[in-house]
Amino acid sequence: MSAAPFAKGGGKSIQPTSSFAGDDGSADPELAALMAGHAAGTTPLRDVVARLAATRVLVPVLAELGAVEETPDGLHVDKEAAAGVVALEAPDGRRALPVFTSVASMAAWRADARPVPVEAPRAALSAVSEDWALLVVDPGGPVTVLVPRPAVWALAQGREWRPALVPGADGPTVDPEVASAVTVAAAPVQHVVRAHAEPGRKAEVAVVLALDPGLDRAGLDAVLAQVNARLGASDVISERVDSLELRIGAAR
């Protein structure tokens, strides 16, 4: 993933820890290898996040932002604080905290950024406290990894991240716990004949609904609203699924 889709903005503060006196600013070799493997399609993101949980990262602090600065790739920097951590804006509008594996990767992203070393779980906790959904590791490359919201929450809470999608014989499939939670949430809604989960096309997980025939637009909207509300109230879904899409399937 390139850094270009992200726009900067929103300065926030973060406090460094004091346990990195001997840190030379280099990347953790194991994390770097896992990130390279993920970029090559040979390492699952789950392994990257697991290593990240035990790793120091560098959070960038920008001492001064111009009122309206434009980066070489055409992105805009909004001045919101004299000094502070900068949030990136993902293509879907969510805010992301940029973190770096090394001083070199941060300098490649922005030479005037000051590195603040923190444990990755602490960086995730700071992102969650600011209502920033994502982490972006090394947005300036050489390898960039986007850490999704459920993984950020798990990092912040010191828990193992369990992705909603797991490898299957014919490609990714929805984890059984998540699939069961989708069925439990959606199936009891009136006019829903069946409900199941599968990997999404535009979102991480698709909830596929088979509905009673003959519903008018108002009836369909009411059913979808109820399904959405029940999905949103599910702890399993909120903790493990980054994004959902609803699809209408055949009732058969």
Rank of each mutant, 00 (worst) to 15 (best):
S105T: 04
D131T: 14
A36C: 01
A32R: 10
A151H: 04
V85S: 02
R201W: 09
V61I: 15
V207P: 01
F20P: 01
A82D: 15
R252D: 06
A210S: 15
L52E: 00
R162G: 09
D175S: 12
N228L: 07
V99A: 12
S238E: 10
R194N: 10
E69S: 13
G41D: 05
A233K: 10
P5Q: 07
L135K: 08
V174G: 00
A156Q: 11
H76K: 08
T17K: 14
V223R: 12
R240M: 08
V99Q: 05
Q226L: 07
L45N: 05
D112I: 05
R95E: 00
D175E: 15
V145E: 02
A210V: 00
E69P: 01
A225N: 11
S126P: 00
V99G: 07
W132H: 03
A104N: 04
L134W: 06
L146G: 03
A181Q: 02
R114D: 07
R56Q: 14
G219A: 09
A54K: 15
P150C: 11
A7T: 14
E130G: 01
P172D: 04
R94Y: 03
Q15I: 11
L34S: 00
V86T: 05
S2F: 09
P142K: 08
R240V: 07
V182S: 00
F6K: 02
D28F: 11
D175F: 06
K79L: 11
L165N: 04
G200D: 03
G200Q: 05
A187E: 07
D47W: 13
R240Y: 06
P44K: 10
F6W: 08
V227M: 05
A83M: 12
A233M: 09
A187Q: 09
H76W: 10
P150K: 12
L34C: 00
T71G: 07
A206Q: 07
P117I: 00
E64H: 13
E119A: 15
D112G: 06
A82P: 02
R95P: 01
L75R: 11
L31G: 00
P121C: 11
E245H: 10
D221C: 05
A127Q: 04
P44A: 03
D235S: 15
V182P: 00
I237V: 15
R217Q: 14
P139W: 02
S180I: 02
Q226N: 09
A206C: 09
D138Q: 06
A181K: 01
G140Q: 02
R149Y: 10
V85M: 12
L231D: 01
A67D: 12
S234W: 07
G41T: 04
M1D: 05
P163C: 08
G11Q: 15
A108P: 01
S243E: 06
P150F: 11
R194K: 12
V174D: 00
L165W: 04
L52K: 04
S234E: 03
A181D: 01
H38S: 02
L34F: 10
R201M: 09
G93K: 11
G74S: 04
G41M: 07
A36M: 06
E130M: 14
V178L: 02
G171I: 10
